[in-house]
């Protein structure tokens, strides 16, 4: 128990610290790397909760795909980050004030009234003998079917949107057209000519 608690605090600390660093780091590549660290340590938290599937998904999807994509984009876009940060100090006082007020208020909210644990119906844990993945899947396709479908629709829209905004049909681009290749006849392209010596075609 104590070990689990200790591990929890380690992961929680690392997650929070690296999240802060994502914003604070001067070099954007470092930011992305800290982001990856945050993902990995939150995956650790999921493992502690007994949600291995989510932990794996987090690592595979977020670390493996999203964050690496970010990294590529950040490296490929040659942005002068120093210039972008120029206004930072100018807004710092107001921003700090706003943040502080918000923090105080939220502290007030959470400090005065604790979460009514009795009222909270705890997230359903998987019944014994059912794996984590299976439990999640059976929930997604039954109770949360509607939301799952909606998420699908949102992703579809995202794909359509991305294509709409970026795809350009370039007439000069060469594409493979298998049908044309298959239907190609030698007679279309080849002409057999008899060439007499010394007279040219």
């Amino acid at each position: 128990m104590t070990i689990a608690l200790f591990v929890f605090y380690v992961f929680a600390l690392v997650t929070t610290a690296s999240a802060v660093m994502v914003i604070a780091a001067r070099n954007p590549v470092h930011s992305v790397l800290f982001l990856i660290l945050a993902f990995v340590s939150s995956a650790g938290l999921f493992v502690l909760l007994g949600a291995e599937f989510l932990a794996m998904v987090l690592v595979v999807v977020y670390v493996g795909a999203v964050a690496v994509l970010f990294l590529f984009v950040v490296m490929m876009l040659d942005i002068d980050f120093v210039q972008l940060r120029e206004g930072f100090l100018q807004y710092l006082p107001v921003g700090a004030l706003v943040g502080l007020v918000l923090l105080v208020e939220l502290a007030l909210v959470f400090g005065t009234q604790a979460v009514e644990t009795a009222a909270v119906d705890m997230p359903p844990t998987a019944p014994p003998g059912v794996t984590n993945t299976e439990a999640l899947g059976s929930l997604l396709y039954t109770r949360y079917f509607y939301l799952f479908q909606t998420a699908g629709a949102i992703l579809l829209v995202a794909i359509v949107g991305a294509i709409t905004l970026t795809l350009r049909h370039r007439p000069d681009a060469k594409r493979q057209d298998i049908s044309r290749q298959v239907h190609r006849r030698p007679s279309d392209t080849l002409e057999v000519r008899k060439v007499r010596p010394r007279s040219g075609i």
Partner: peptide
């Protein structure tokens, strides 16, 4: 954009403070 985002944040803080 960041002015706008800032205005929104100030707005939510103002609403919260007003309420609290």
């Amino acid at each position: 954009v960041y002015h706008y985002a800032f205005a929104m944040l100030i707005g939510i803080v103002a609403l919260l403070s007003w309420y609290l």
